Structures are given as C-alpha cells and as structure tokens.
Amino acid sequence: MTPDDDPRPVEPEPPLPSDCCNSGCPICVHDLYAEQLQHYREQLAAWKQRHPEEPL
C-alpha cells in the first residue's frame, strides 16, 4: 500500500475564538473540536502503524 492509496489523516482546524458564543451550548464548538481531534489522533496512530517508513 502506498501513501497515495492511504493518505495521512488531516488534522482538524481549531475553532476560531469568534466561533463560540459563550452561552453554554449543550454541544459547544470546542467540544466538537475535541472529539474531532481525538478521532484524528486515533486515525493518525493507525496510519503510522501502516506506514512506519513515512516521516513524522
């Protein structure tokens, strides 16, 4: 498998300060970002296992 067939995961963009309304939403943009970041880290760890020769 080549990196072209299995591209490295892309880190999610953090929310901008203006993206949060600071009104205590049940699901805040910061919560969503934290979930996306965790998923990215898991996907990246699995990708690194499949591509140990690729630079970090």
Score class of each variant (00 low, 15 high):
1 M>G: 15
1 M>E: 02
2 T>C: 11
2 T>F: 05
3 P>H: 07
5 D>G: 13
7 P>V: 01
8 R>Q: 13
8 R>N: 15
9 P>Y: 01
10 V>K: 07
10 V>Q: 06
11 E>F: 03
11 E>A: 09
11 E>H: 05
13 E>K: 15
14 P>W: 02
15 P>S: 08
15 P>L: 06
16 L>A: 07
16 L>E: 13
17 P>R: 08
19 D>K: 12
20 C>Q: 03
21 C>W: 05
22 N>I: 00
22 N>C: 10
22 N>Y: 05
23 S>A: 05
23 S>H: 02
23 S>R: 01
25 C>G: 07
25 C>V: 00
26 P>M: 05
27 I>Q: 14
27 I>K: 13
28 C>A: 14
30 H>Q: 15
30 H>V: 09
30 H>S: 14
31 D>A: 08
31 D>P: 05
31 D>S: 09
31 D>G: 09
33 Y>F: 13
33 Y>H: 12
34 A>Y: 03
34 A>H: 11
35 E>L: 09
35 E>A: 14
36 Q>H: 08
37 L>I: 03
37 L>R: 10
38 Q>V: 04
38 Q>M: 08
39 H>K: 12
40 Y>W: 11
40 Y>C: 11
42 E>W: 00
44 L>E: 02
45 A>G: 04
45 A>W: 00
45 A>E: 06
46 A>T: 10
46 A>F: 08
48 K>D: 06
49 Q>F: 00
50 R>P: 12
50 R>T: 01
50 R>S: 10
50 R>W: 00
51 H>I: 02
54 E>G: 06
54 E>N: 04
55 P>L: 09
55 P>N: 10
56 L>G: 03
56 L>I: 00
